[in-house]
Structures are given as C-alpha cells and as structure tokens.
C-alpha cells in the first residue's frame, strides 16, 4: 500500500520524504493546481530540486495540474505540463479532459493520474479515461462507500487511490460552485476555495466571527474549536435553528479502515493538506506510516492524537461509511 503525501513548500516536501512518504504530490505557484494560495507551492527550480531530493530517497513526485483550463488561456496549463514532464515528475494528476488529451498526445510515456477533481466515480467513467488517455490511476471522489469501491475495483483497468486523512470537501468535487458563488473564485477554475482575499475574522464580544465575502460563515463561542471559512462548513439559521446545512467542520480519517480498503482493491492512500505547515506534514505522514505497519488493534492509539490537528478538532469517516444524519 502506497502513502501519498502533500507538500505546499519545499520544506514540507522534505519533511514528507523524510517521514517515509512513498510519493509526494505538489503543484506550481499558479492557477494550474487546486491549492493556489498566497505564498504556497513551487517554482520550476524548487520543483527540480524537490524531485532530485525525492529520487535520492526512493520517493516519487506527483505534480497536480488539477484545475480546469480557462478558455483562451490553455497555454498556461500546457506549459505547466511540459515543465513537469521535463523536470521528471513521476506522474501528473489531471482533472481536465482536454489537458488529459493534450498530455496523452504529446507525452505518451508520461504516467497520468485522474484527480479527485475529475469526479470519476463509476466504472464507465473510469474506463473511458483509461481507454482515451491511458490513465494509470484514479483518485476516487469522496462520495463512495468502501463497498462501492470494492464493487468498482475489479471492473476497472487502473489503480485506485483514495483520500484517507485530512480536509473533507462537500461531495461535489470538481463541480462545487459554493466558493464561486460567494467570491467569484473557485478551486476548479482558480485553484482557490474561499480565497483568503475574501476572508475576514473579527471578534464580537466573546465570539469569533468568520466571514467570506458578504456572508457570515460561522460564529464560534469562546473555546469552541474553529473550522475553515468555507460555505460548505458554514453554520446557518435553518428554521430558526443554527446548524450545519452542508457538513460539519470536521476532517476525514478512515485510517481505521486500512484493511477493508486494501481488501476492496485500493493501492494508494492519500493525505490531504498541501495548504498545511511542514509540522503537520511531518506529524501526519510519520504517524500514518507507523499505522500502516501496526496491528489493527494498535492503530486507534496511534491515530488518536492527530484529531487535535484536524479541522474542528474532530474527524469523520465521511461517505466511506455514510452514517451521517
């Protein structure tokens, strides 16, 4: 089982490699990837050095080019693909079918992975991407149960990677327009969900108020664990009762289901969090690496302390078990 780890900076990249990542995924410092945040990501030179560092340690480097090309500006994405290939990326993680076609045509030997942003969630969709673009791996959307994955796995002709830990999106990956609705910018087109330029925090009495554009996202009471200022994690008045309309501010953790995921046919486990600091990357990667080789009974104790690092300081198994209200 491979462990695929995030890196938003060269320092985080080195931490992931040193902590035992089998592969590290990262992106360029522009809108070609879905974590296009200020100060984050890699220049071409930084990626070159990172790939060399990873190679020396037997770690692979995946480059995420997982936003959708803007009409008329395709050259930005084509150039990013060309540079990633030239720098020696072990795989490109793509969401846009047009970019997949471009890569398949111009770099037929380049390994291509289907991003979670492509929302390929059934046998026909996945096999189409395998046949059309020679995709070698699909990152499944976080909409499927483990039983669903087990039903899909034997019928598709590529490897399966799933998210097991970290931030959890509302279940419309690649198609979510909530951020775009509130700010005009989305992870799909601009690489930013809830862009920082539209986020404000203010204190109101003892409460922390988070705002996104013109919307109040949440009011956290003193001492209450906070979450990201995204509309999908917003607490709104519904029939005069405040509540989470879309999903609670919690993070994904299905590391307790490693054996079931393996049995279902999963070959790689992915950690979300390119926007997180290097301390987070080091801690999560090393802990999950230990959990992979630990006995099932020993895993809960290993994983328990990671909850404190998570959004809302809570975790969920999300759609993998579909136990929500």
């Amino acid at each position: 089982m491979e462990l695929i780890c995030p890196a938003g900076t060269p320092a985080a990249f080195r931490e992931a490699v040193d902590a035992g990542a089998d592969a590290v995924y990262c992106g360029f410092r522009d809108e070609t990837n879905a974590r296009n945040f200020p100060g984050l990501n890699f220049t071409r030179d930084e990626l070159r050095e990172a790939i060399v560092y990873a190679g020396r340690n037997g770690t692979q480097t995946f480059v995420a080019l997982n936003t959708f090309m803007r009409a008329g500006d395709e050259e930005i994405w084509y150039r990013a693909a060309a540079d990633a290939v030239a720098l020696g990326a072990d795989a490109l993680i793509l969401a846009d079918f047009g970019l997949m076609a471009h890569v398949a045509e111009h770099y037929p030997d380049q390994r291509l992975h289907v991003s979670v942003q492509a929302s390929a969630s059934n046998v026909d969709a996945i096999n189409f991407l395998v046949d059309a673009f020679n995709a070698k791996r699909v990152v499944l959307p976080r909409t499927l149960t483990i039983a669903d994955i087990a039903r899909i796995a034997p019928k598709i002709r590529c490897e399966i990677e799933v998210f097991v830990f970290g931030g959890l999106c509302v279940m419309a990956e690649g198609r979510c327009s909530l951020s775009s609705y509130a700010t005009g910018k989305s992870p799909n087109m601009n690489g930013v969900c809830s862009p920082a330029s539209h986020v404000r925090y203010r204190k109101e009495a003892d409460e922390l108020v988070s705002e996104l554009g013109a919307y109040t996202i949440n009011r956290f009471a003193a001492g209450e664990a906070a979450g990201y200022p995204t509309l999908c994690k917003g607490r709104f008045d519904i029939a005069d009762e405040p509540g989470y309309a879309f999903e609670d501010p919690v993070s994904l953790d299905v590391m307790g289901e490693i054996d079931a995921l393996t049995a279902a046919g999963v070959s790689a486990l992915k950690i979300e969090g390119r926007q997180r600091g290097k301390a987070y990357v080091a801690e999560v990667v090393s802990t999950l690496k230990k959990a992979l080789s630990a006995k099932p009974d020993d895993r809960p104790a290993l994983l328990a302390h990671l909850r404190g690092l998570s959004e809302g300081q809570k975790t969920t198994s999300g759609a993998y078990e579909k136990r929500w209200r």
Partner: peptide
Amino acid sequence: DADALFFSRDLTVSGDME
C-alpha cells in the same frame, strides 16, 4: 501548524488574510 492552532483557538488572526 498554524491551521491547527487556529482550530484550537490558540491563535487569532485579523486584517489582510491573503
């Protein structure tokens, strides 16, 4: 990790978030 400290309310940020 700054996000973790924000979630736990140990850290408060204000002003220009970008």
